[in-house]
Design a protein around this nucleic acid. Structure first.
Lengths: 193, 193
DNA sequence: ACCAAAGTATACAGATCAGTGTACTTTGAA
DNA sequence: TTCAAAGTACACTGATCTGTATACTTTGGT
């Protein structure tokens, strides 16, 4: 009816799949449910994705883009000072944790379910984490850290810990704890510069 | 045949289940396989555990004991100096990560699969993490930290990050990165004392 | 030697799973 | 207006899943 095409079925399917996979897990989410929730027949789903594993990979790739742009948006405009910008990564994480549809890191959950059975799924997850580390390394360089590799390794690990802590122990303010630890490490690193 | 009773079927089932759940995930591991690998009939399995969810909970409780005693053993005798003992937590983590049957934190994997569908499973996971934090807090107190709660919150979060990093990015030496960050935080905390 | 508890063997129920076959309908652009 | 691509509707396959029924056998303590 409308000349402007509605969001393609493909996008709709990925969006629905991401929601269900994140909330209920991968094996626990059936193809039939994803199709029904997307308002699409199973036949159409299989026209776009040859198998469930392919849909999982496409969904994780979409999450990769979505999550990295989320962090970019919530940190780039946050502050002019490069040190504050680096630390605002953990404020962005705090926003993320407080969202209704936060169920931990879906990449980690995917690894837990598919590590031994599907290499391409594992690869997408590792790649996201690698790009994430690279981005933080860039922020460390901008902040003038003398050893940006070392600092970003530590801050990335702290970010991972914050995500998991927010998932498993939601009564803790994981983002705040992480930011406090990160602040100490950053200030010590910059003092040496 | 032997008068010394072989390890009970119950223990055998839990041991097998832990191995398979950790390696392949929970939903991906069927009851039939667990029974067969345990050398036990499915009927016997259901005599010990009323349902798969009950077996999952029992398995996680067993892992709770196993994992905490593992860390106790690898840190208590490690060093007399309480500060070094605190930091040796990350050496113990390094040993764990290098084991063949390390597939990340099975508690975190369980949360990812069951968070929205089974409260008791979620509870066992949260409880393990809480006890783990309490134990680290005790080590912080022994080391003379002026604010052991704050320091242990940060170190626990770093430990979580190390576990996840070791799982997702095995090419990194997550334990070493974590220990370096932890050392900086501990020394700064003790300097204030 | 007896007997109850525990385990075996095996078939089965009922649900759900991923994925397919077939015939029909809508859509949008040339 | 025509026509091919995309989607629908729906039944269906074969595998696998959790959990159960039934009848038999082993085991260990008294």
């Amino acid at each position: 009816m409308p000349q402007t095409p509605s969001p393609s079925k493909r996008e709709q399917l990925i969006h629905t799949a991401l929601t269900l996979f994140s909330r209920y897990g991968f094996h626990a989410t059936g193809i039939d449910l994803i199709a029904k929730e997307s308002g699409v027949t199973k036949r159409t789903l299989y026209a776009h994705f040859g198998s469930k594993d392919e849909l999982v990979v496409a969904t994780l790739r979409h999450l990769d883009e979505q999550l990295r742009s989320y962090f970019l948006k919530h940190t780039n405009g946050a502050c002019e000072d490069p040190k504050q910008r680096l630390l605002s990564v953990f404020d962005a994480a705090g926003f993320w944790f407080s969202e209704d549809n936060f169920f931990g890191c879906t990449f980690i959950n995917a690894i837990g379910e598919y590590a031994e059975s599907n290499d391409s799924i594992r690869q997408v997850c590792s790649e996201y984490k690698r790009l994430s580390r690279e981005w933080i390394k860039g922020l460390c360089e901008q902040a003038g850290a003398p050893n940006p590799q070392q600092l970003s390794d530590e801050l990335s690990l702290i970010l991972e810990g914050a995500i998991v802590t927010a998932q498993v122990s939601p009564q803790l303010d994981a983002a705040a704890i992480a930011k406090r630890a990160a602040t100490a490490l950053v200030e010590q690193a910059l003092k040496d510069a």
